[in-house]
Design a protein around this nucleic acid. Sequence first.
DNA 1: CGTCGCTTCCAAAGCGCTTTGGATTTCTCA
DNA 2: TGAGAAATCCAAAGCGCTTTGGAAGCGACG
Lengths: 342, 342
Amino acid sequence: MNLRELSTLLKLSQTTVSRALNGFPEVNEATRARVKAAAELHGYRPSAAARRLATGQSGTLGVVFPRERNMLGDLLFTEFLGGCVDQASELGYDVTMAMARGLVTEEDVYRRAVRSARVDGMILSTPLIADPRIDLLRDIGMPYILHGRTRNKAPYPFLDIDNEGAFFKAAKLLTDLGHTRIALLNGLTIHNYAQDRERGFRTALANKGVDAAAPLMSSTMMTEESGTTVARQMLELPPAQRPTAFLCSSLPMALGVQKVAHARNLRIGHDVSLIAHDDQLHELHAETFDPPLTATQSSIGDAGRRVVELMIGMLREPTAALPQEVWPVDLVVRASTGAVAG
Amino acid sequence: MNLRELSTLLKLSQTTVSRALNGFPEVNEATRARVKAAAELHGYRPSAAARRLATGQSGTLGVVFPRERNMLGDLLFTEFLGGCVDQASELGYDVTMAMARGLVTEEDVYRRAVRSARVDGMILSTPLIADPRIDLLRDIGMPYILHGRTRNKAPYPFLDIDNEGAFFKAAKLLTDLGHTRIALLNGLTIHNYAQDRERGFRTALANKGVDAAAPLMSSTMMTEESGTTVARQMLELPPAQRPTAFLCSSLPMALGVQKVAHARNLRIGHDVSLIAHDDQLHELHAETFDPPLTATQSSIGDAGRRVVELMIGMLREPTAALPQEVWPVDLVVRASTGAVAG
DNA sequence: CGTCGCTTCCAAAGCGCTTTGGATTTCTCA
DNA sequence: TGAGAAATCCAAAGCGCTTTGGAAGCGACG
């Protein structure tokens, strides 16, 4: 059942049927109802391809990532992606993923996507400090939005959380509790958020005149494994340098730290304090840690949903101001933090 | 730059240019070269929308999953998905994901996708024992392929691994080593693969007259957590019932078992043997276990790649026989298995 | 009664590609 | 050399939708 068939069946023109279905004002409400009923009855669905060709809009959003950096293995990314797909379905959009591999560079993928008009907009995740993709997309005129921020000069649309504020709050809590040797287990500093977090951390310490000691600052992938490795190293420092508190960039890292602490019979919340940033994944919760974990928390899934909302908003009103949102982050105090021991 | 512009520029008809670019035989190789060069030079890309409309093919494959069962949190699924996207990009296809949520049932998503011709084919992952999606897709005429098998009667295209054979081999190794109390930590038996694995396991034990004791058979989600839980329970059985070997359905489960064994000072490969099925994920490797893990292994990423290949093959030659592939699974013996302790 | 202004509907022109059904040229061989 | 076959190219008809630019119908107002 296509538009022509439906319209002859209704003894109306295609124009009228199309307008009735798409909510245009210049059609009588009575006929609109009649059209809608008939469409429903015969299970009419407009052909996506034809509509795309006619409107130039594809009704799809794109997510591209390099093959080497297979982000599908990263739970943070997949949770974000899940949020995107969720919201996109809600708003009638599809999400397509493409992988740039081998000789086909990521840039090529973008260029091709633009020329062949496969997607209406792109979602960029975990940007680098200076991310070439942004300038590229701007130059070729592909709408996009960033999850996270970057150092590129020109203004760009983004949604980010207040990483600096979050880590400031967390570090302040620790200094307020009397800690002076605080370890920061950060993510890789090629990413902006890691630098933001470090800044917040340093500011809080500086406010109390506490030294951000180099041996207590690490920057690694945010896995459980690196959590254990780094924690082990730090706990083997001479007692006078050994950290009494850990601030981790992810829950898995905190898991690693916890493991090491347990192995050394350090009681978390007493002998050593532990805070982590909690992205609120489905399968790992700060509150089910033992003891429940003090955490800065912000749902990365919700961020995905919101990013899609913003992206589609931009597509619908291209002239509106660029969306630039920074979400505050809550610090939830649980049992893993306590006053510095003895 | 569109086809018309390019063709007037070349002083050829659109027909010829189109045919030259798409490799049709009825065009002179010299002109084909000329056309290709010009297309390259001017960066011509055919409009995906127009091509879709003209051919009726969308150049996209679809993956749908219910929101409740957010498979994006499952590393097995994402590894599989990564393989799909990888191979699809290679073959010039896109992969779009849709999530069925709320009132919009999964069925609706399929129906809509079909009518609006958004995707050429669907990829179904982790099917249930009797999966309604298969009959549905057949009925509405949407091409599809299954990763895994199911009990539906009518023939359907699929790619699966030989789960039964794999677990037969693994269990046989253990019985050959003299084990008589072997634990099976299986996945949920709503899935076909789990039942296949159990069958292989039972056969191997029966062949040696070994009893498949009910207290040593479990069926849970394949997480590290359930691995520890189940292993702990089983190791608390009276000595005469306690397992001397564990056969796990996933590496994370084996991790859980390992943890419990360590806690009890059981040496893996000596006091207790451990085998797991290894889907060859990026972030978890049987060979880097301590000790290196004996495993049945089969790359789930490769399966994703192959599934896409088969799907596209079906689209190109709809009349060919339904692809039905079962991959053999290797058993790789490492240090985690040994003769039963005196 | 004629005209203006709304409301309601329509014919037809694209969107950019593929593909059918020739037309024209070139080649082959008697 | 000429006729048929083969190679090469082309004009035009869709694919199914949106959208432009009117046209027709109808009541109201001077």
